[in-house]
């Protein structure tokens, strides 16, 4: 359960949040530049609230009035960035093994799990390559696999299918919908990503709130 009530200021723009997010998959919809990525960055701890409070699973992680801010690496949050952000010096396999290694897993265990995650998004065969040798679509799948390999209560996806070819979208989409993370917040501009009757978060006109799916 994620509770976000508050606001951020960006120059003269203000974005107001009014969200109580239950476990499950939530799609974030809204026009370009409305603040969809900002919502993800606030949840992740990459941007701080200017007022209000954010709690993840009952734990307050951001409350400016109380001087409380939990840094990104201490939050139970995983994220797949729209621009992938793979570590250039690591192989694809070690990029995906990175979260488990930082949590103390042995190299062997982390790589075994990473291989499984890569296979689940259909790129088990590129494990030994470096990020610079990948197509944009392969980079995006690696970034998705890394996020899936990060144990967290909350999975943030920023346009995860933007660079995925049409033939593979169905596979990746269903893989993301069945992620083991209790809550997923999924930014997409593609209506076919959004399941019928699903829960949605709309970002429009400076307001971020839940809307009912149609």
């Amino acid at each position: 359960m994620i509770s976000l009530h508050g606001h951020v200021l960006r120059g003269s723009l203000r974005l107001d949040f009014d969200l109580d997010v239950e476990p499950g998959v939530h799609y974030v919809v809204g026009p370009n530049g409305a603040g969809k990525t900002t919502l993800l960055r606030v949840l992740a701890g990459l941007e701080a609230l200017d007022g209000g409070e954010l709690a993840i699973d009952g734990q307050t992680v951001d409350r400016p009035a109380g001087g409380r801010f939990v840094a990104a690496h201490r939050r139970p949050v995983a994220m797949a960035f729209q621009d992938h952000r793979l570590f250039p010096h690591l192989s694809v396999l070690d990029n995906v093994a990175f979260p488990a290694r930082r949590r103390g897993a042995s190299r062997h265990d982390a790589r075994t799990a990473a291989r499984r995650h890569l296979e689940s998004v259909g790129v088990g065969d590129i494990a030994r390559r470096r990020p610079r040798e990948l197509s944009v679509g392969q980079q995006q799948r690696t970034a998705i696999a890394r996020a899936l390999a990060t144990p967290a209560a909350l999975l943030l996806l920023d346009e995860p299918l933007a660079a995925i070819d049409d033939a593979s979208r169905t596979l990746i989409r269903s893989r993301l919908r069945s992620a083991t993370h209790p809550t997923t917040v999924w930014v997409s501009h593609d209506p076919s990503d959004v399941e019928a009757g699903s829960r949605r978060i709309s970002v429009e006109g400076g307001a971020v709130r839940q809307t009912l799916g149609s």
Partner: peptide, 11 residues
């Protein structure tokens, strides 16, 4: 960018 990605991977 990479610092943020590392933080979100728990580093």
């Amino acid at each position: 960018a990479l610092d943020e990605a590392a933080a979100l991977a728990g580093a």
